[in-house]
Simulated scan of single mutants.
Amino acid sequence: MSLHAPLILDIAGTALTGVDRRRLAHPLTGGLILFGRNWQSRAQLTALCAEVKSLRPDLLIAVDHEGGRVQRFRTDGFTHLPPMRAFGDMWMRDVKDLPGTGALQACEAATSAGFVLASELRACGVDFSFTPVLDLDHVDEAPTIGQALAAPQGGSGSLGRPGVSRSGVIGDRAFARDPRMVTLLARSLMHGLLQAGMANCGKHFPGHGAVKADSHVALPVDRRSLKAILSDDALPYTWLGSVLTAVMPAHVIYSRVDDRPAGFSKRWIQDILRGRLGFDGVVCTDDLSMAAARQIAGRELSYTEAVLTALQAGCDLAMLCNRSVVNGGEELDTVLDELAQAQLKGHWEPDEASEERRLGLLPRSPARPWEELVRSRDYMQALDRLP
């Protein structure tokens, strides 16, 4: 049996099938990622998560649940969380004659959002959300950080958003343009997650906001120097090193640093993220099912090649999404079989440290049941603080 379960897979429906149970029981499967199609009601979601845990208590049940347009569960009592940009905008709205009050209120609101997000998910049995986004909200013709900070407080222009977000896929998922604001708001949101017993995941390292292409459909290329990236987009990873529990690399090529996307790059993951920045938490790929995400030197990798390349580059976990709904999930079975064969042939060695990091993402405290949660004073106060 493997000492390392690196694969995060998906399921097609709202309940486990026999095939789902077999895949989730596989020793190379370490997690399940949920989508909107897996949601029907709180009772259904709770039953689904309980069945997964009865099968494998160590499986990480995860979801992309950020707020705004990236929120998988929106009905049957789930709070509609604002996009992260709402907290950046709140930061700029000071109480009259009291500079800095907007920033304080924004940080408190971000903590409340993290607490609500994690508490509601955990009440249904979900362990982990891939949040927060640490990308900077680059906009065309935006002023420099210094210009933005020098601008008068209270106006929407003080953050320098005269145009649309440069990255359509990020857009209002980002807190702000200034890496200092992003860091403090993200830290606040992480504190809220932690209050509810949930780990966090900063994404998309070292920064996705400066490129226009959507990595779901095309492979973006960022041509800035390493110095420029580390002194701007990657700063939140430097400043949040003591509290980040997981990082998701971007499906972006930073051509002056490496010719491989960050998630396939030993330079980015081992030399820079782990070596230079000292990060020792989980590194999890973004979805490797995207064709654009599997490009190296102009060649499209197979799913198994992509998983192996990511693991060999230093990732702890490799995620394949939405494959269960294609041909009955045959591609998932192929990856499980081929990864097992790669292990037997010595092409990939399980990493015990990676497995320890994966297990570290699991909650360590019991979750409050939904009915108890929604009647609790701290939950109701958190709702009142949301923008």
Rank of each mutant, 00 (worst) to 15 (best):
R274E: 00
I269G: 07
R276L: 09
R294T: 07
E300F: 02
A292G: 13
A297M: 08
R294D: 08
L277S: 11
G298H: 12
A297F: 12
R299D: 08
E300N: 10
R276F: 01
D280G: 04
D286P: 14
F279E: 03
G278M: 07
I272F: 13
G278Y: 10
L288R: 03
C284N: 00
Q270S: 06
D287C: 15
D280N: 13
A291W: 00
L277P: 09
R274F: 04
G281D: 07
R274V: 01
K266C: 01
L288S: 03
R299W: 10
K266V: 00
S289P: 08
D286K: 12
G278A: 06
G281K: 12
R274W: 01
R276Q: 13
E300V: 09
I296V: 15
A297H: 14
A293H: 08
K266N: 04
I269M: 13
C284T: 09
S289C: 15
T285E: 03
S289G: 13
D271G: 00
D286M: 14
L277F: 07
D287Y: 03
D287M: 07
W268R: 01
R299I: 12
V282S: 06
I296S: 03
R299G: 01
C284K: 00
I296F: 04
R274G: 01
I296R: 08
D280E: 12
L273C: 11
L277T: 05
K266E: 11
D280Y: 01
I296G: 06
I296E: 07
A291C: 02
I272M: 10
G278W: 10
G281R: 12
E300A: 12
V283K: 03
D271R: 04
W268N: 03
L273W: 06
F279R: 06
A291S: 12
W268Y: 10
M290I: 06
Q270H: 00
Q270D: 03
G275R: 01
G275I: 03
A291Y: 00
V282P: 06
D286L: 15
F279C: 12
V283G: 06
T285L: 08
G298S: 14
R294P: 10
G298T: 05
D287R: 02
I272C: 13
G275A: 04
C284M: 09
S289V: 08
T285Y: 08
I269N: 09
S289N: 14
I296P: 05
G278D: 04
L273H: 07
Q295Y: 02
Q270T: 06
D287G: 12
S289K: 11
S289A: 15
L277C: 08
D286F: 13
R276K: 10
K266H: 05
R274S: 02
D280K: 08
Q295S: 10
G275W: 03
W268G: 01
A297E: 15
L288V: 08
R294L: 13
D286H: 15
M290Y: 11
C284I: 15
D280R: 13
I272D: 07
K266G: 05
Q270G: 00
K266D: 05
